[in-house]
Amino acid sequence: MSIDAIDRKIIAATASGLPLVPHPFAEVASWIGLQENEVIARMTRMQDVGIIRRIAVAPNHYALGMVANGMSVWDVDDSDAERLGARVGALECVSHCYLRPRSLPQWPYNLFAMIHGQTRDEVERKRAGIADLLGSSCRGSDVLYSTRILKKTGMRLSEGG
């Protein structure tokens, strides 16, 4: 999958957000010297191939009352990790679920599941539910609460490439 210099310009122009005007793609086009239809065609292509996942809002979980966010981590038997990961990922309370390598000896966990809730109690209840689901295939777990967002800009592209 490749993007050329013009795609790159479009991505860079919209990296901090889409302009809030009735015809935002015309506005973006005017910034970088293109026609609106070219911007629309290129962004549509990038969305079709998955480079752009979607154009949407990123809600601020905290502002919306989801103030407890715990990264639950699990040491799951490798032979069972894919099957169980799929089940954990399907839970409604889990926003992201990934299988990742362990970093032994400090980090024995291979399954990561983000749990959001209004309180830590709620997150702990949901975590207990995941523990039940994993059963004896899980050798250990932890939960890491975020205490501060230090940066949140999303992916940035260099314009030059």
Binding site: L18, G50, A58
Partner: peptide, 23 residues
Amino acid sequence: GAITRFGPFLDAAAMGGAFCLCA
């Protein structure tokens, strides 16, 4: 502050790039 961003969400992997969680 109810939304942090409004715009395209990119997938680095689809562009031939990569994401990595680090600690």
